[in-house]
Nucleic acid binder design. Structure first.
Lengths: 188, 188
DNA sequence: ATAAACATACCATACGAATGGTTTCTTTCA
DNA sequence: TGAAAGAAACCATTCGTATGGTATGTTTAT
């Protein structure tokens, strides 16, 4: 491992680049920009190289999706575990992910996620399951209006951001949304 | 005009069908499902027929997009004009469009809009301009946190809906979001 | 040596687009 | 009024390109 500089070939790195570049392409030019050729070239590899790492284009997409879901879960877990209040902890972590730091954490990742979902019904189902699992794990009621609104607002905000629509100050968004989760009733 | 039933050819209707079927395809199977062949077949026309009405696939997409923006503007205008309170009227109309009736108005349309945008940077810019125009026309500050959150929540909600994620009761969503626009400060 | 990590060459398919022709409608003018 | 002329609406076919994928070669690491 310390002799990584010696290696001419670094398969793991190539695999990483393939996934990262695919995300970039999707974000910059839309999902249809994810072609085997384009991704391979961007990662400095030929199509053959691509198909060595992923048996198909769909496999690449699935891999990205899975990875993103895992990242999301762990990032949320880390934040939610620090939350003193149980009710709405998931949603607050969700908010914090989007508006927490000075720069949006997992911004690219988040957008790529949805771009992939929008073109693939199967991925949409996975997302739905993931979200339901998370919500029930953290004991949040899907019918809760305030919490739902907060989460939807987060989704809408990064979507807007991706579209280039202006967004209010990150700090004030964070504050307002977080506040709304505390006044949220435990039912409805 | 009253003898429209006599006509064997009805170009306007064909044009309509092409646009409608394209929307359907996008919604049901993602944007990549919009191919000239698929749209033409769905509308009961050949590729040649398609290309007679629209010089290119992009032209069809542009036409749909423009139409949707117009529809949206007029629907919002109709609702906002009935609003007694000026501040936040646009956002309330926006909310009402999504959660107003028993069934979401312009649901298909709305989703189709974003699907198209997500794959086309040029359309994204058009949307941004449209939204900015509307906001300034109705005198809403883009920096207003409460109103922005409400609008983002609407966006996130139909996105969720399209993903198959459960959403709280329409009525309570409508109520909560509308309420938030009244308590919204005129600044920030 | 041999297996992994790629590159090269190639294939079948599907796509957007163009072409040329055929049918249907509208206009014009005798 | 009506028929000829032209335009509009549409179909069937074709073409070049790009795509996802395969098959096979070549290099690199262990």
């Amino acid at each position: 491992m310390p002799e990584a500089h010696k290696r001419v070939k670094d398969p793991q790195a190539v695999r990483r680049r393939l996934m990262d570049e695919a995300k970039k392409l999707a974000i910059e030019s839309g999902i249809s920009a994810i072609t085997v050729q384009a991704v391979a070239s961007a990662a400095g590899v030929t199509k053959g190289g691509f198909l060595h790492h992923f048996p198909s284009k769909q496999a690449l997409i699935d891999a990205i999706f899975e990875e993103v879901l895992d990242q999301l879960a762990s990032e949320i877990g880390a934040r939610a575990s620090k939350d003193r209040v149980a009710h709405g902890a998931f949603t607050r972590a969700y908010i914090d992910l989007a508006f927490g730091g000075e720069e949006p954490a997992m911004d690219q990742t988040w957008i790529a996620l949805s771009l992939l979902m929008l073109d693939d019904p199967a991925l949409r189902m996975k997302w739905t399951e993931w979200l339901n699992d998370q919500l029930s794990e953290y004991g949040e009621d899907q019918g809760n209006v305030e919490l739902s609104i907060a989460r939807f607002a987060v989704d809408g905000a990064w979507l807007a951001q991706h579209f280039g629509v202006a967004i209010p100050e990150r700090k004030s968004m964070h504050e307002a949304l977080t506040k709304s989760t505390f006044s949220a009733g435990k039912r409805g």
